[in-house]
């Protein structure tokens, strides 16, 4: 799939030529494209989709709200600002990704800081902190877009914000795969605790859960996952919101199952969305646009077919 097409048998042939000198130039090209471009991108789509979905599922359980997505505490706005700042400063793509990650983490820390300043530990105040933090970084991002060079910098910022898997390298994938896998595993192990937390703080506490420790640990891990995805692929919307709902429709409400299924479904969803992004038109469409379009239709289907949302 993609602009340079080859059949599965050709791919198999090229793989079997690995290490041999007598290979045709087409086989070498296929070999090179598969290992250096296609495979990293496939793995990146799986990794980003799984991370966004599990992050969304964890956020929904922690905040006891099925309409919450990983952007709740401002991580997406903060990452967007970090990336735009880096683009304007002329940093290379790797530094842009690091800035995006740091921006996302900073936004969530500001949300928590607002909660601390107000001196309350309630989830609602934390969400308000997230709203303030997101609005603040969105405003800063708008300023950067306003001052960016409209010929060179602004298109880069806009393209990055639309979300795309084109920039991912094997090195970067190797760097993030460990924290992403660890984060997903950690959240899946915390499934029962998330079930208790989604019943309310008092109930979770009387069921033996150290509410504040678990809540902030889960927020830290879910935020790290979301920030890593934004640093790799820009803003990819709807995955973190919709996929956990699909997981609940398929496998029930228990968060042990929801986290596992979200990871699998999210990975497949983003892989298919990325395939569509590459094949729908001669020029590649940012995958964020595809997930927005498909995501809202899927969400409509979930709302129509499930009884799960109780607002």
């Amino acid at each position: 799939m993609g602009r340079f097409s080859f059949s599965p048998s050709e791919l198999w042939q090229s793989l079997s030529y690995l290490g041999q000198t007598a290979s045709s130039s087409r086989m070498e090209t296929i070999h090179s494209i598969f290992w250096q471009s296609r495979l990293p991108r496939i793995l990146a789509a799986l990794c980003v989709g799984a991370a966004l979905s599990t992050s969304g599922a964890a956020y929904q359980a922690i905040f006891r709200n099925p309409l919450v997505s990983p952007g709740l505490l401002g991580v997406l706005a903060g990452s967007g600002f970090g990336a735009a700042l880096s683009i304007i400063a002329g940093f290379n793509p790797m530094l842009t990704q690091i800035c995006a990650f740091l921006g996302g983490i900073s936004a969530v820390l500001i949300s928590i800081l607002v909660q601390r300043i107000l001196g309350q530990n309630s989830v609602l105040i934390l969400i308000f902190g997230g709203l303030i933090s997101a609005a603040f970084f969105t405003a800063l991002l708008s300023i950067l877009k306003y001052v960016a060079d409209p010929e060179s910098q602004l298109p880069d910022i806009v393209f990055w914000l639309l979300g795309s898997l084109t920039q991912i390298s094997s090195t970067q994938l190797a760097m993030v795969s460990l924290p992403v896998s660890g984060g997903i595993l950690g959240l899946s192990l915390a499934g029962r605790l998330l079930d208790a937390l989604s019943m309310g703080d008092d109930e979770a506490c009387t069921l033996g859960v150290s509410v504040y420790y678990i809540r902030y640990s889960v927020i830290a891990v879910a935020t790290m996952l979301a920030a890593l995805t934004v640093s790799m692929a820009g803003m990819i919307g709807w995955v973190g919101l919709v996929v956990p709902h699909i997981a609940r429709v398929i496998g029930g409400t228990s968060n042990q199952r929801v986290i596992h299924l979200s990871a699998i479904i999210g990975a497949i969803f983003l892989l298919l969305s990325d395939d569509l992004a590459r094949c729908l038109s001669p020029e590649e469409i940012p995958v964020g646009i595809i997930t927005d379009l498909v995501g809202c239709l899927l969400f409509l289907w979930v709302l129509a077919s499930s009884r799960e949302i109780s607002l």
Binding site: P66, A196, G208
Partner: peptide, 21 residues
Amino acid sequence: AVFPYTVEEVVSLGRLPYIAF
């Protein structure tokens, strides 16, 4: 509750104090 846990899942939460992470 916000999420539609089954009755068995809700009652199972009572065993959390005995289950390791």
